[in-house]
Design a binder for these strands. Structure first.
Lengths: 226, 226
DNA sequence: TCCAAAGTTGAGCCTTGCCTAACTTCTGGT
DNA sequence: ACCAGAAGTTAGGCAAGGCTCAACTTTGGA
């Protein structure tokens, strides 16, 4: 039985499902529910159910009917390869080609399915085999490993807590623009100065400057201990 | 009636048909036959016939049943955009990323359908808005113009003729490797020293060195007057 | 003028990916 | 311990995209 080492024969839909399942499994490690997949990919639950069966027949997931789905090692490799492509591309487009940050995600979303493994390695080499993309997300290695130290949402930190802002979702260009406009980037240290009650804004100091940041934003911003 | 300025909504098959028709029309300018398209794309004539009707309904070709097909201006724009993408990508992959020449074509064949107009312009800018790709093929401009000065096959030149080797088909990696290995590149001047009869090899001088080149090769090598 | 080659049409197949509707299974609150 | 509602699955279907073969029509050169 041949083991698949190349995603090129998998439809982009299949790759997207693998990626979605991987992402959803990230937080908890638990099996991923059909409805979560359906919601994330914006399809009907029945469609997700059917596609998941397809992935199973491809050996990419193991499935316990009614109890969710997990990626097999093969499925994880597929997902990590897509994620690696995506993050390398984001970094490359922004850094080597000067593409505006808020366009980078959409472009990578398409190209991640189109580039060959060879090209992705050339890009990685050109970038000096980076381990993080511009959003602070870790880049899986060629052989399917990834640094997944857990992070906490900025919104969940108590007053006075210090930490390092490590990453922010790449899916919302607005946030990127907003943070970039304020000079805040992944890697920066910070201290939570104060928080308003009832999901109110946080006041956070980055370097010398204090910023007042709203709820949606501080929930998207992930932090690590200093 | 909206004029389409973006290929992204056209399937890659449609784009490939437009490109094929454009390429086939290059030599003669005459309408392109169904069988020529079918052969080039390696499908049955009936398939090509059907697809061509689809292109017609998209306004990309005008068709005279039984008498071939021509690209409309809109169709030509589509084809030229794909060709521009392809050639920019080839150049970029080879030059900026150091991808081996013989892989460049296959990679570009896929990516030409995936990159956004924005990315293609960033690439063009990075390359200094080049007018020729590594094979010597002219690169269409953003607005759909292309330098199409006619060329002659090296094989067709008489003894003693001088000229400039301007381009070679990018479809055959073998030829590229072979020529590169001998230090012959598009742009080089040459003189035909002698030719053997019955489709025999040509002896051609490039700079100081004389090379003996076979029929298939010298038919693929296009030349311009010095 | 006639016939072979080229082109077209018709019928159909297969894959992908999605949907809705109806059914089944699970789960938590009483 | 039960059962209602939530979550998941199956069944049936549809539309688009591309392709095939077989049979028919048109064309154009000998």
């Amino acid at each position: 039985m041949a083991i698949r080492h190349d995603n090129t024969e998998l439809s982009t839909a299949v790759q997207d499902y693998a990626k979605a399942i991987w992402t959803l499994a990230q937080r908890t490690g638990d099996p991923v529910s059909t409805s979560a997949i359906a919601e994330r990919l914006d399809v009907a639950p029945a469609s997700a159910s059917a596609m998941v069966k397809r992935l199973e027949s491809l050996g990419l997931v193991s499935r316990e009917p009614y109890h969710g789905v997990r990626l097999t090692r093969a499925g994880e490799r597929v997902a990590l390869e897509v994620v690696r492509h995506h993050r390398l591309l984001e970094l490359y487009l922004a850094e080597a080609l000067g593409m505006p940050w808020d366009q980078v995600h959409a472009e990578a979303e398409v190209l991640e399915h189109a580039i060959s493994p060879e090209l992705s390695e050339l890009i990685a080499k050109k970038l000096g085999d980076p381990t993080r993309d511009p959003h602070g997300d870790p880049i899986p290695t060629r052989d399917g490993r990834i640094d997944e130290s857990p992070t906490r949402a900025l919104a969940d930190l108590p007053d006075g807590e210090r930490g390092r802002f490590v990453r922010v979702s790449d899916a919302d260009p607005e946030m990127l623009r907003y943070l970039a406009g304020r000079g805040i980037s992944p890697g920066d240290g910070f201290e939570v100065v104060s928080r308003e009650p009832f999901d109110g804004p946080l006041t956070v100091r980055f370097g010398r400057k204090e910023h007042v940041l709203g709820g949606a934003l501080t929930r998207a911003m992930r932090t690590a201990p200093e």
